[in-house]
Structures are given as structure tokens and as C-alpha cells.
Design a protein around this nucleic acid. Structure first.
Lengths: 177, 177
DNA sequence: GCACCATACATCGGTGCCGAGGTATAGCGT
DNA sequence: ACGCTATACCTCGGCACCGATGTATGGTGC
């Protein structure tokens, strides 16, 4: 998830670590802050894998900056990760939102639509949080107000996302033709 | 999050690992599956910490079961984690839902309300995913349909959750008096 | 003059988590 | 007889992540 965000932000423009960190904090930090001690090793991993290169520049304000630039291999890897996400990237909302934030980098509308359809299929699976045996329980059947809240909120999210997915798939379909 | 789920499920009734795993899978597994190699070490951690005890029983179907039972210390620890969650448990939806699923184990309505108010405060903070400088961008301002989707979905979720939170806080207030 | 904060990068130890693989028993189909 | 699936538990290696801490510089407030 973090690596995807790094690749995604660098795809648009080279950045140094500190600014990259603020971008990531704006995107996911509200929900899940990213520690510096996670970001810098992640950058090093990507560098080691040949997905980005670092160039030292004198710091505009303070210490010298390491400006990060995506390599061609890095761009390919980003597109690969966007086009063929692991199932976790589809099901976990945190991961999914990160993926969505960069899905425009996938040039082909058909490829974008294919990813959206995987999410659609996931959301259309019947699933609950609470079961009585194998039978899923609805919000109305629960006495616990907190568990009822979970189902109520999840249902509202799901409804909004399904509507958006169908709209967007329709307009991608038009664009693809 | 996993440890909270284990403590939460065992608070109601003793279970053995295999059944516990199915409970957890129903609760969070749709979004984020739990590997056995994560669950069993987690159980051992909790046992080592004195939060639960294991009793071997002959297996009903196959191998012998280790029935897990919460100790008093375990019950206290669960209530402590529910009453004083880390900020991550409040902000990350996955964690938050897990917490909500067991919040009823907190006997005092005032303590339950205090936790809900922390979530309410978090949701009421102005926050976006995308900024132009320091100014948050609204869905309407975004050209990217995918980023617009993120904001649309997040807004729907937030609205549903705020409504539920206010309702529930109101009825907890009545109950508390 | 000094504290404090923002910028900018880095290391280290600890820990939670995961995939791959292993061990066993029992039942079902072929 | 053989494979398959479900039950039931476990270990190991690897890795992502985090908090704490360190090292600089330069600007702001008092």
C-alpha cells in the first residue's frame, strides 16, 4: 500500500522524501499515519529494486534533499500493480482507496474498468459481519446497537460505492468505444 | 485488532482455536483474512500474558482441541482496551469496526458514549484526501473520476456514521440517566 | 542569546503478520 | 486402496511497520 502510494506520487513528478511524506499523509494519514521510519526504508527498497533513483540536491531550506525519480521500470511496475492488484487491494478499503487514487495512471479505460469490475464483484458477494449458523443477520435483527451500527454504516458505504461503480463503469464503457 | 477480537469473542464463551478462527473470519475476514499462522501465535501471546488459559479436550471430530477461556485479568484487559483505545483504533475503519463489535462488553453506558464521542470528534475534523496547497478539494473540483469516487464514497460513509453516532449517543444519554 | 519548531534524512530493536509447510484424525466418494 | 476434504494445531523464515532516537540546518518567537 505504501509502496503503491510512493510509485503513484512519483509517477507525476519527481519529489524528495519529505514532500512525498506530506502527500502520503494527506492521502492516507488521516486514517493511518505513516511513520518516517517506515517511509525511508520503503524508498530504499524501491531504489534497490531499480524502480526509482535518487539524486542529491542542496536543500532549499535545510539539509540536502534526495530527489526521487521513477525509472521506466518503476513506471511499468506501477502500472502492473494497478492492473493486477492482489485480492487484499480489492477488499480492504484502505488499500482500495490508495489504488483508486492512482488508477488514472493506467492509460487504458478497459484496464481501469476491469479493476473496477473486480471491486464490483467483491461488493456484490453476499456477506455480513454476523451470522447465526450460516445465515447472515441483518441490522434489524441485532439487539446490540453497536453491531447494528456496523451493518448500517457498511450498508450505506456499499450502496454509495455500488452506485458510483456502476456510473463510472458506464462512462468508461462509452469512452472505451 | 486481532487480539481485541480474540478477547472479545472469548468474553462471551470459551472457544477453541478453530471455531474462534471462523468467528473472526466472519467478522473481519471478508475484508482482511486472518492467517492461521497469525492466530495461533496471537493466542500464545495472550496466554503468556495471563489473559487466557488453555484446556485440552478430546477433539469432537478429529485432533484434540485447546479450549480457550478468558481469565479475570483477560476480562479486565478487554474492558481496558475498549475503554481506552489507541488513536489508530478510532481512526482506522477496520480497527474501529472490530472495537464496535465488542463495545457492548463495556458495562457502563457513559464509558461507551465516551468512546463514541472520540470517533465523533475524529469524523467532525475537517479532512480531505486531496489538497491544493492547504485547501481541501471537494469531489466536484476533481477531474479524476476515481479520486472523485473516493470522496463520494467517504462522504456517504461519513454521513451515515455521523447520523448513527448522534442517534446512539442520544439513546445512551437517556439510558445513562 | 536561547529555546523551539520545521525541514530533511537516517538507524535500530522489537513485534505483528504472512506464506509455506508440517502433523494428525476422520469421513466420503470412487 | 487412494485421494480429497474438513477438523485441529503448530513452526519457521522473512518482512513490513513502528516508536525511539540521532544528526544536521535555518528561521521564528521572546
Amino acid at each position: 500500500m505504501l509502496e503503491l502510494a510512493i510509485l503513484g506520487f512519483l509517477y507525476d513528478a519527481p519529489l524528495h522524501g519529505y514532500v512525498l511524506r506530506r502527500h502520503i499523509a494527506a492521502l492516507t494519514g488521516h486514517v493511518r499515519p505513516v511513520a518516517e521510519s517506515t517511509l525511508y526504508p520503503a524508498i530504499k527498497r524501491l531504489e534497490k529494486a531499480g524502480l526509482l533513483v535518487r539524486a542529491t540536491e542542496p536543500g532549499a531550506v535545510a539539509a540536502p534533499r534526495h530527489v526521487l525519480r521513477l525509472t521506466e521500470e518503476g513506471g511499468r511496475e506501477l502500472r502492473r500493480r494497478l492492473a493486477e492488484p492482489a485480492q487484499r487491494e480489492i477488499t480492504d478499503e484502505n488499500h482500495w482507496f490508495t489504488l483508486l487514487a492512482f488508477l488514472r495512471h493506467l492509460a487504458d479505460p478497459a484496464a481501469q474498468a476491469a479493476v473496477l469490475r473486480r471491486r464490483l464483484a467483491f461488493l456484490e458477494e453476499p456477506a455480513s459481519f454476523f451470522y447465526e449458523g450460516d445465515r447472515p443477520l441483518s441490522a434489524e435483527e441485532l439487539e446490540d446497537p453497536f453491531r447494528r451500527g456496523i451493518l448500517t454504516i457498511a450498508r450505506a458505504t456499499s450502496r454509495a460505492e455500488l452506485a458510483w461503480l456502476r456510473d463510472t463503469l458506464a462512462s468508461l464503457g462509452r469512452a472505451g468505444r
